[in-house]
């Protein structure tokens, strides 16, 4: 099974001066897996994710992303992944079509490919009538679904999602997860952070970060068993309460 590992980290560490933001984390993610990356605010999730995306160099430790070394091949990593977050997703003052064209162009897709796939995508998202509207005028839920589709438009091997559903209504939140399931079924690995504990249940496996370390990593079912908890919410609270970092 070793050859289906798409993210591998070994003792990955990031220091800022005396502060150890990410403290020797080691884990593997398999191809096509939906991997939930949980942790309290300040636990080190964003710093870890920035390293995995090739945006920040580790202080020590090893990692490969889609087979590329995290120190030497950051540009190859960037081409192999997609990224979206609640804070940064699309350009509000460009239209739906322009945003798709812009991102696909950055990833070097051909004009023909962009044209054909845009039509298909707009149809799937029921956004045909909105194609020439500014993204800023769309409801948040639509924006987030579009942002996700744009993030996987170039068919990356891994997509990183940083709190993609924050503030989104419960119906759209579920539609968003359907898109995640579809992407995963196509073999795209999904690496996702969330504060909604019901969403942790939708992941194949979940890791929980506390004070820069990964304190637990398993399937939701196994985590609940190990912590004698009725829900992922309880598992999370048991672990996160142990945190000693004063960041809350």
């Amino acid at each position: 099974m070793a050859n289906d590992i798409i993210i591998q980290t070994e003792q990955l560490t990031k220091r800022f001066g005396d502060f150890i933001a990410v403290d020797h984390i080691s884990f593997d993610v398999h191809k096509g897996e939906i991997f939930g990356f949980l942790g309290a605010n300040g636990a080190g999730k964003t710093t870890a994710m920035r390293m995995l995306c090739g945006l920040s160099l580790p202080t020590s430790g090893k990692a490969t992303i889609a087979g590329f070394d995290i120190y030497k091949k950051t540009e190859a990593i960037k081409r192999s992944i997609g990224y979206m977050s609640q804070k940064f997703s699309l350009y509000e003052d460009l239209t739906v079509k322009e945003n798709i064209r812009f991102y696909a162009g950055i990833y070097g897709m051909s004009n023909k490919y962009i044209k054909d796939k845009t039509a298909l995508l707009l149809q799937q998202l029921h956004l045909e009538d909105e194609a020439d509207k500014l993204v800023g005028s769309l409801p948040l839920g639509w924006k987030q679904k579009l942002a996700f589709s744009v993030a996987i438009f170039h068919e990356p091997q891994i997509v990183f999602l940083d709190e993609p559903t924050g503030g989104v209504d419960p119906v759209t939140r579920r539609e968003f997860w359907n898109l995640i399931y579809e992407a995963s079924a196509k073999g795209i690995t999904v690496f996702v952070t969330t504060h909604y504990m019901d969403e942790a249940e939708y992941c194949n496996r979940v890791s929980i970060m506390v004070d820069g370390r990964i304190d637990a990593l398993d399937t939701p079912v196994a985590l609940k068993e190990n912590f004698s908890a009725a829900s992922m919410d309880e598992v999370f609270l048991q672990l996160a309460r142990k945190a000693t970092r004063n960041d809350s």
Binding site: A40, E163, G166, H195, A243, S248
Partner: peptide
């Protein structure tokens, strides 16, 4: 107004 948006589960309980 949305005091707990984007806040983790532990801080929300507090």
């Amino acid at each position: 107004d949305e005091p707990t948006t984007g806040v983790d589960a532990v801080s929300r309980k507090e």
